[in-house]
Nucleic acid binder design. Structure first.
Length: 437
RNA sequence: GUGGCCUUAGCUCAAUGGCAGAGCAUCGGAUUGUGGCUCCGAAGGUUACGGGUUCGACCCCCGUAGGCCACCCCA
């Protein structure tokens, strides 16, 4: 009905929702920093080719979900909004010669991503990811560390029951042979395949493995498994990752059908998953190793691993499981008064309180004192500073709203008195409960 | 891109072809400057939008948009 609204698949985060986001953003920044991941911010858009080459031209993300920016006639390049953070970060790694930094380069980012996809609950065209990347470390230990970091994030956020789904999808040495074998296997059972699966067989045979079609269950159970066909180095890497996870006491579930949607993944692939949610948006985050991506985007061959955690789905999951956010802090003092000619004084008094480091706001519009006090009390303010006739003597009324007590004090003493009484109130008066000040 | 369900006040919902309503929220009033409760009142609507059927449409039909669900895919 309004003439303008937020674009399809986007939404406004209203003040009632932003405390959760603020908390999760701070938690991500704090965790990343403690693990040694340093903040990086890359542009929200890149040359389309960064995504087309990096993610893979025939992936869904590029083929049908890339948010392309209409080209201007005076520019030859084509741009696209980032659908995921990794390609841009790797582009920055190459551009800034980060291979000359101490390796691995550990980077973290938190911000909006864009995919042109039909919206649903937990699926938006603009969505937020907390992202962590370790570039330049080939070893399996960093795989385990990064998975542990992900599980830590969910736990500290307050979400229980997040499962780690783990798989290895091999590398260019062993995967092609496996894909050929898998294709031959399904091809031999072509008549048994549902229509959809036959078309997927042409495009991406690995996809059949995580089919939701019940008709595929038996066929998939008998299918050759990638984890049985890994080359020796991949197999060793995978075994070591699992051993490290076990040593860290991180439970995980082997998921041979786990295939990530982006072409750049090699070896370790994982998803963070929570069962039993409304709707099917159960993937809360995911990531994996991408040992070929740096080279693909013009750098030297460099191993790397990372993950992205979807904040939108995390916020939804937290709300569904009844996690509530701490209440927003109430103003310490509200400066009230019914005399419209004293507005300037109220403004000044509130300004002085704030200059003294206290939270204060002035009532500047409302007319009736009763309504002003009502609003202040409803907001949970501790004090009302009442500016009235006493002003002529340089005094104001200081009313403790929860206690219902009131006294007259000189304006000169106001900031000190409010600060003292508020501190005493917060820490509790000596020998009594938290109450009057 | 395919299929299904839904859309009435800011929010949650009534009104089953015959005068569009309630609760909550908002704002104001209850003897000019003192409270969160209570009471009274106001404001708030092109019934998502566009067309059609009908004496008459929130209600039936068609289309569009948006939301949701499933598929695809993914966070």
């Amino acid at each position: 009905m309004p003439a303008y609204r937020a674009p399809r698949g986007t939404r406004d985060l209203l003040p009632a929702e932003t405390p959760a986001w603020t908390r999760l953003e701070r938690l991500g920044a704090d965790l990343a920093s403690r693990y040694g991941y340093r903040r990086i911010e890359t542009p929200l858009f890149e040359q389309s080719e960064v995504f087309e080459r990096g993610i893979g031209a025939v992936t869904d993300v590029v083929e049908k979900e890339l948010f392309r920016i209409a080209p201007r006639t005076d520019e030859a390049e084509s741009w696209a909004l980032r659908p995921e953070p990794t390609a841009g970060i790797v582009r920055a790694y190459v551009q800034h010669g980060m291979q000359t930094w101490p390796q691995p380069v550990k980077l973290s980012q938190l911000g909006p991503m864009f995919r042109y996809d039909p919206p649903q609950a937990g699926r938006y065209r603009q969505f937020w990811q907390f992202d962590v990347e370790a570039i330049g470390d080939p070893g399996p230990a960093v795989d385990a560390e990064i998975i542990e970091l992900g599980t830590r994030y969910y736990r500290d956020a307050g979400l229980e029951g997040v499962e780690v789904l783990l798989n290895s999808i091999g590398d260019p040495t062993c995967r092609p042979a496996y894909v050929a074998e898998l294709t031959a296997y399904f091809d031999a059972h072509r008549e048994a395949l549902p229509e959809l699966e036959r078309t997927r067989l042409e495009r991406n045979p690995l996809r059949l493995l995580d089919s939701k079609d019940p008709a595929m269950a038996a066929l998939n159970a008998m299918a050759p498994r990638i984890t049985d066909r890994l080359c020796e180095p991949c197999a060793e890497h995978f075994a070591a990752v699992r051993a490290h996870l076990q040593a860290l006491a991180i439970p995980y579930r082997l998921e041979p059908g786990l295939v990530r949607g982006l072409d750049y993944y090699t070896r370790t692939a994982f998803e963070f998953y929570v069962a039993g949610r409304e709707g099917q948006q159960q993937a809360l985050g995911g990531g994996g190793r991408y040992d070929g991506l740096v080279e693909l985007l013009g750098g030297r061959p460099t191993p790397a691993i990372g993950f992205g955690i979807g904040l939108d789905r995390l916020v939804l999951a937290l709300a569904e499981t009844g996690v509530t956010e701490p209440a927003e802090s109430a103003p310490i003092a509200v400066v009230v008064g019914a005399d419209p000619d004293a507005t300037s004084h109220r403004l000044r008094i509130a300004t002085d309180l704030r200059a003294a480091g206290l939270g204060a706001r002035a009532e500047l519009g409302r007319r009736k004192l009763g309504k002003q006090l009502e609003a202040a009390a409803r907001d949970g303010a501790h004090f009302a500073v009442i500016v009235g006739d006493e002003l002529a003597d340089g005094d104001v009324g200081l009313r403790d709203l929860p206690a219902g007590t009131q006294k007259v004090i000189p304006i000169a003493d106001l900031a000190r008195e409010v600060g003292r009484a508020h501190a005493a109130h917060r820490h509790g008066p000596p020998g009594g409960g938290a109450g009057s000040a």
